[in-house]
Design a protein around this nucleic acid. Structure first.
Lengths: 144, 144
DNA sequence: CACGAATTACTTGTATACAAATCATCTTGA
DNA sequence: TCAAGATGATTTGTATACAAGTAATTCGTG
C-alpha cells in the first residue's frame, strides 16, 4: 500500500476534481457551475456587493471574477449596476431569478457534501479541514 | 473560530491553488508548469508511453493530455512518434533536454513539498493523504 | 486646483479541464 | 471479406484561473 506516497499535489487535484464533478452534476440542470454557485452564495448572504469585494471573499483574481459575473449576468441570475458614488465601481445584485434559487441550489450542494464526505466522521472531517485551511489560507497574505 | 465551517469544496480549491502557486514559482525558470511536470515524471519512470496510458495514470481527459503534450513538444522536452504497430497510437518519448531535467525539477518539487507541508508531522500528513485519496481516487471508477 | 498615484473593472494571452464531435485506424462478426 | 463498431488522438466550444496591461475614475499632495 504505497498509495499514500502519492504526491500531495496530485491527491489534492484529484480530490478537487471529484468534488467538482459531483457538484457539477448536481447543479447542471439549473444552469449554474460550482464556482458560480460560490459567488451566488455570497450574494445570498449580502446582496449588492462590489466586484472587488467578491474577489476578495472568493480569493480570486479580478479577471476571473469578471468572467464569472459575465456568465451569471448573461443567464439572468444577477445584474450589474453602477455605483453612483464612485463610477469606477460596479455593484452586483441578484435578480428575482437569482434570489429564488437559493433553497434548491443549497439543497443540492448539501447532497453533494453528504455524498463526498459520508465515509468520514466529524472528527476526521474537522482535522482534514484544519490541514486544508492551514495549507491554503492561513499561510497566505490573503484574508481569512 | 467558525473557520472550519467553510465548505470543503472551497477549502480544497484554495489548498490546491496555494500548492499550484508555490509549484509554479519553483518551476517557472525551467519553462515547465506543474501539470507538465506531472506528465514528465511519468516519462522519467517509463519512457515511450501512449497518450491514453498517460491520460489514465494522470486521471485526465485525452483532450487535456493532447494540449499538455503539444506544449511540452513545442518546448522541446518530448517528442511524438507513430506506433508502427497501430497507427492510431502515438508514443511519447523524452528528448535529451527532457531527460536532463529530471534531477533539477524533482529537487524543486521537493522544496515545494517541504514548504507547503512543513507545519505537519508524519502522522498528520498520512491521515490527510488518506482522506484525499478516499475522496478523489478510491471512490471512482478510475484506476488506482 | 492640478497632476501623479492609486484603484476598479476590464481586456488579452496562456494554460488547464472536460464534453462532444470528428478523423483515421483497427477489430470483429456475419 | 466487408460493414459495423470500437479505439486513440485531435478539434471545437465553454469555463475557470491568473499575469500583465489598459481605460476610467478618484484621491492625495503640493
Amino acid at each position: 500500500m504505497e498509495k499514500f506516497d502519492i504526491c500531495v499535489h496530485f491527491l489534492l487535484a484529484k480530490a478537487l476534481q471529484r468534488v467538482n464533478q459531483v457538484s457539477k452534476s448536481k447543479l447542471a440542470s439549473y444552469g449554474v457551475t460550482p464556482v458560480q454557485f460560490a459567488l451566488l452564495r455570497r450574494l445570498w448572504e449580502k446582496d449588492g456587493q462590489f466586484g472587488y469585494a467578491l474577489a476578495e471573499q472568493l480569493l480570486m483574481d479580478s479577471a476571473t471574477i469578471t468572467g464569472i459575473i459575465d456568465r451569471l449576468e448573461h443567464n439572468g441570475f444577477i445584474e450589474r449596476r453602477m455605483d453612483p458614488n464612485d463610477r469606477r465601481n460596479k455593484l452586483v445584485f441578484l435578480t428575482e431569478k437569482g434570489k429564488s434559487m437559493e433553497v434548491s441550489l443549497c439543497e443540492k450542494m448539501d447532497e453533494m457534501n453528504k455524498e463526498v464526505m459520508s465515509d468520514f466522521d466529524v472528527e476526521e472531517i474537522q482535522q482534514f479541514k484544519k490541514v486544508l485551511f492551514k495549507i491554503g489560507i492561513s499561510n497566505t497574505n490573503m484574508g481569512v
